[in-house]
Design a protein around this nucleic acid. Structure first.
Length: 151
DNA sequence: GCCAACGTTGGC
DNA sequence: GCCAACGTTGGC
């Protein structure tokens, strides 16, 4: 099982939009970059986990975990140039992991997200990076609390 | 709003 | 195949 980070501008589609969607699921479409397309088409598998990242937001941050529930399929079956997957929201972070917080972690220095000029909207995350970000995202969650509302 | 960095397009 | 021009991304 692999890990990924998907960017979305919350003004276009936010974590809360995904959480509110039927079956908390959406088709992740509209990606128009070939490297990201190749991930969607060839490498992202059902059961992979996704960090949902808010770009162009205040703050920019990873805000929750989603799961890939359908592998890559063409947006248009007659012209299989662009691919989509389905993702289902699994867990909102109790504490969003901001871009600034990630930059402070030496262990995350090599993250694709943090590379200068990097703007890939679908990117791989290593298991170590995932572990740390998930840990940061789950801070301060009372043991016996219900999953929090996202807003 | 600014602008650096990037990806794509198209003339040659 | 080169590369300038252009449009977009996304942090600040």
């Amino acid at each position: 099982m692999r890990h990924w980070l998907f960017k979305s501008e919350p003004s276009a589609f936010s974590w809360d939009d995904l959480w509110a969607a039927p079956r908390r699921t959406t088709n992740w479409s509209g990606v128009r970059n070939y490297q990201a397309r190749n991930f969607l088409r060839d490498e992202i598998k059902k059961g992979d986990l996704v960090l949902f990242y808010h770009s162009s937001a205040e703050p920019t941050a990873a805000v929750g975990v989603a799961e890939v529930t359908r592998e890559g399929y063409p947006e248009d079956p007659k012209d299989p140039t662009w691919y989509q997957v389905d993702v289902t929201a699994r867990e909102p972070f109790t504490t969003p992991v901001t871009l600034a917080a990630m930059r402070k972690e030496r262990a995350l220095a090599d993250m694709v997200l943090l590379k200068k000029g990097s703007r890939l909207s679908i990117q791989p995350v290593t298991p170590d990076e995932w572990r740390l970000i998930a840990k940061l995202g789950r801070r301060s969650r009372p043991k016996d609390a219900l999953p929090p509302l996202t807003r």
